[in-house]
């Protein structure tokens, strides 16, 4: 009986231990882990270039995941973690490019395309042309035909 009580007392401790997530050598609480994943999802893996750091199997991506998780555990804000990566790898590391003179055209494109489309629509639509007024002979002929 005492053993059972002891085991039951230990249960919450076991549950707590299981809740911690270890990935890339860093152990975090589930909340910290989801924060780390959210940061990693926004960063491009430099080796495969079209996967996020979270999705990539490349060794460098694993090292960067470890760095993100270490910084999350230290309480570094997300913005500063992103800054750490941009300082090393440039803005290419961001899967969502920041708004900067280099990307103005990129972000203006949807509006520009819409304007261009509207212009083409308004300008290119065939408008019915009003026929020239009838001259005297034509008016006479029409009058005769209608009679």
């Amino acid at each position: 009986m005492r053993r059972v009580v002891f085991a039951l007392l230990l249960l919450p401790a076991i549950a707590g231990a299981q809740a911690l997530v270890t990935r890339d050598g860093v152990t975090l609480t589930p909340a910290q882990e989801s924060r780390a994943e959210a940061v990693g999802d926004q960063l491009r893996c430099l080796v495969c270039q079209n996967e996020s750091i979270e999705d990539s199997d490349a060794k460098l991506a694993g090292q960067l995941r470890g760095i993100i998780r270490t910084q999350v555990a230290q309480g570094v804000p997300d913005r500063d973690i992103m800054k750490f990566m941009v300082q090393r790898y440039g803005i290419f590391v961001l899967l969502k490019p920041p708004v900067s003179p280099l990307t103005y055209l990129l972000y203006a494109m949807p509006a520009l395309a819409l304007l261009l489309g509207l212009a083409a629509f308004c300008f290119g639509r065939p408008r019915p042309e009003t026929p020239a007024p009838l001259d005297e002979a034509e008016a006479l002929r029409l009058k005769n035909l209608l009679q």
């Binding site: 430099l46 080796v47 460098l60 760095i67 090393r88 790898y89």
Partner: peptide, 12 residues
């Protein structure tokens, strides 16, 4: 460890 590489921005 590849840590200096990360600080330099070496990706391969």
């Amino acid at each position: 460890q590849g840590t200096t590489a990360i600080n330099w921005g070496v990706y391969g």
